[in-house]
Design a protein around this nucleic acid. Sequence first.
RNA 1: GCCGAUGUAGCUCAGAUGGCCAGAGCGUCUCACUUGUAAUGAGAGGGUCGGGGGUUCGAAUCCCUCCAUCGGCUCCA
Length: 636
Amino acid sequence: MTVTYPDGSTVQLKKGSTFLDAAIAISEGFARKVLAAKINHEFYDLNRQIPGDASVTFMTFDDEAGRKLYWHSTAHVMAAAVKRLFPDAKVAIGPAIDEGFYYDFDVEKPFTEEDLEKIEAEMKAVVNEDSVFEREDISRKDALKLFTDMKEPYKIELAGELEDKNVSLYRLAGFTDLCRGPHIPSSGKIKAFKLLSSAGAYWRGDEKNRMLQRIYGISFPDKKMLKERLEWLEEVKKRDHRILGAKLELYSVDEETGAGLILWHPKGSIIRETIENYWREEHRKRGYELVFTPHIASERVYQRSGHLENYAENMYSPMDIDGTPYYVKPMNCPGHIKIFQSKMRSYRDLPIRLCELGTVYRYERSGVLHGMLRVRGFTQDDSHIFCTPEQAVDEVIGVLNFVVELMGIFGYTFKAYLSTRPEKSLGDEQSWESATTALKEALKRTNVEYELDPGEGVFYGPKIDIKLRDVLGRLWQGPTIQVDFNLANRFDINYIGKDGSEHRVVMIHRVVLGSMERFIGGLIEHYAGAFPVWLAPVQAVVMPLTDAQRDFAVSLVDKMRLVGLRVDLDDRNEKINRKIRDAEEMKVPYMLILGKREIETDTVSLRKRRDGDLGAVPVEDIIERIRVENKEKTRD
RNA sequence: GCCGAUGUAGCUCAGAUGGCCAGAGCGUCUCACUUGUAAUGAGAGGGUCGGGGGUUCGAAUCCCUCCAUCGGCUCCA
């Protein structure tokens, strides 16, 4: 038979040859790397026979599919180890995830740290045995009987739901699992792995179900890769905004004040204020109008908006004002709508772009709170654009261009997702169709690449989600652009058209930063606390060597502050080494060292954080340098 | 909310099996030193041992309960 490789070359193999044979035909070395094979979109284990003439693609750890099956296979190894150590454990599911794998088990007692170590040791044994993954195709009926005999209720449930008449089983080291496959040929292919954590997880993610114990892990074909991965995790830990936020005195959360409520300290406030000022400027430039709306509103408006119907579980209990219940606002939309409706609007007035740094409060379950990233009170950089249907595409384009520019300033790249109509949703098919088309058109015309996220839209309209990629390659929820039919209808938001009659507006809801809390929390990690000059709470510290330079230092600080720079004086009775160390620890971009020599020559010894000594520089040049970076928003 | 872990000075952490006034380093304050590119030295002050309740002659240590934090599940700006 003829096997065709992806590059178009072919090889003749005798009938009954396996995929491994086809890989060996390329080279022994390549065959060692190959994990599984694919014909069209169907995956095959390497030891399976090639069904006939075919175009075969091989998967290795270098491609995503290969990594996933490698990790998934490691999950099997882990399950085999767990079953050996805990024969009563019931197995649930064990998929690969973006970075690694997990397996859920139903056990009497949650796993402890020591258990994980034991499981790791047992996994090593399974790997050393170089156990082969054996596939068996059986009827669904037989599978059900098998898992009933094995007393594996979760597998019975899963097998019972499969549509196919036949299902596949995989056996490894005495452990039999219901699994579609494919797998790596044998457990010996796993060269390096580590179990990372265990935690409770509901069966099928539903809190009404029993809680299982999930173990997370990661594996690699090379010890070095595991080491790099563990170092990466260390780096993530070092950048944790909760640690850096405290160390750099940016914010705190206080138990007595309440969980999930951010206290912005002076240094954190400077960062926020700087971003907010920039944000306001950029919005005015683009024809947005800034507004303020109240923090509380009567229940009537939330009845009308539908929040009490659809969003009540995220809203706090009302307070009584003269017999009427009032709610703390969970969203800014009603306020903006009321401003729009305060007078008749002509098509000539549109688009109207109202924006607000609006602080909202939402109930979040205690277990989900997380530093600045998940809080109960936060300020959204919110905007609602009211426009005609014809203007919608251009408005979305405007927002996308805005996003591109703004995210570039912070050094983020991003990925866009278009979420379409979910099952539970409002509005007619035509509205959804035209709004989704408008979003697509805008993405196309701005050359923003996107992925489709079918059925992931909000109930009131389709949306574009933009995920930011930080320096460590992690994705963060960023800007969102949503078309909202619901509110436009509920509030009956109209404009007078050319024809003199009323028409429904198109309402576009969007945030660019998301919320100040989440955005800045993310920025802390993105920059590892070392904010660029324009955002740094302290841009420079002036350090006199001895008291003799103190007066000169004070006048230098004053001079720099006068031109708007954020400068501190470190005139503590400490050695210069100490002052430098402390400023480096606080991630201050510039250190200005003043000694006798400098004063004589009207220079300052300039030191850049992380880079070190830059030598003596005339005072004016230093001021200019920092001013330029401040103005240009230069990143390190 | 659920599962597990954790909570000792401003910070990082010691304090087996319950037993004299609860310790260290860093930071803070005071004094000395007047300093040349990542921690000068000495001294002093600082703790309801997360809150409440209980067991005990005696609790930071054991039990109950609440709160918060951390890792997840679910959800989300």
